[in-house]
Amino acid sequence: MEKKRTSPVGRPRGFDADEALERAMLFFWRHGYEGAGTAGLAKAMGISTTSMYAAFGNKEQLFRRALERYTEGPSAYLARAVEEPTALGVATAVLAGAVRTTTRPSHPHGCLGVSGALTTSHSGEEVRDLLVSWRDNGYCCLKQRFERAVEEGDLPADSDPGLLARYVTTVAYGIAVQAASGVCREELQELADAALRAWPLR
């Protein structure tokens, strides 16, 4: 009796999805959302465009995945910074993290969340709005942390947590822009140190 053949349930993907997503994140980081064409993305990821769409969806969906990876990886310093015991420690850690992340020799300079889609065509508006929300989330995290610092007496009672959060995020994003322009890490750290000298003390 002839043995019945069984078909495989599914073909193996044939590539490391985690590595491909890492490469996509770096490509978006380097070129921005609209500057990253699908053919260039697929090539950078080491896969075909067909495989890219099958595994990650369309370009916007891929960007969202890449931004999540960026948030949990290179930009994770913000989540760690808010755990610092003092408000000054939080601000110091945020700015040091911004300097470190935006000037790594092995990574694109600048910040994916800042320069990824500042200006876009109509088709990129959802990604632009996504990054606006991403930046606003960072601001809100710091604002809440500084509100706690006021309640605990770590910051003067007349401090404005919202203004302080805006100050820190503005300096951090400015650091990212300067890093993308080629300003060196040492100079950017000096800038961060100068910004912190204006920090309110109890």
Rank of each mutant, 00 (worst) to 15 (best):
G40R: 03
L191G: 05
S133L: 11
V114I: 02
S115C: 09
A39E: 15
A79G: 14
R65D: 07
A42M: 04
T102G: 01
N137P: 01
G174A: 03
L118Q: 12
G32I: 02
T102V: 01
P105K: 14
A179G: 02
V177D: 06
H122V: 09
S106A: 12
T101N: 04
A24K: 03
S106Y: 12
G97Y: 10
A117W: 06
V9E: 12
M45Y: 07
H107G: 13
A93H: 06
P85M: 00
G73H: 02
T169Y: 05
A39G: 01
A87P: 10
A117L: 04
D16A: 09
S123V: 06
L131C: 01
P85V: 06
Y173W: 10
R145E: 05
A79I: 08
T170I: 02
R23E: 03
G110F: 00
F15E: 04
A39S: 08
A91S: 01
I175S: 07
P105F: 10
V150L: 04
T71V: 15
P200K: 03
P161A: 07
E190D: 08
A55L: 03
C184Q: 03
K4H: 11
L112V: 00
Y173L: 15
L131P: 02
A79R: 12
G124H: 12
A98V: 04
A81W: 04
L118M: 05
K143S: 05
Q61W: 03
G113A: 14
A39W: 06
T86P: 08
K4Q: 13
G35L: 01
A44Q: 07
A36R: 04
N137R: 13
Q61A: 14
L130N: 06
R65Q: 14
L78W: 06
D193A: 14
L164T: 06
E19Q: 13
D160Q: 02
A44C: 10
R30E: 15
I175T: 08
A55I: 06
R145K: 10
E22M: 07
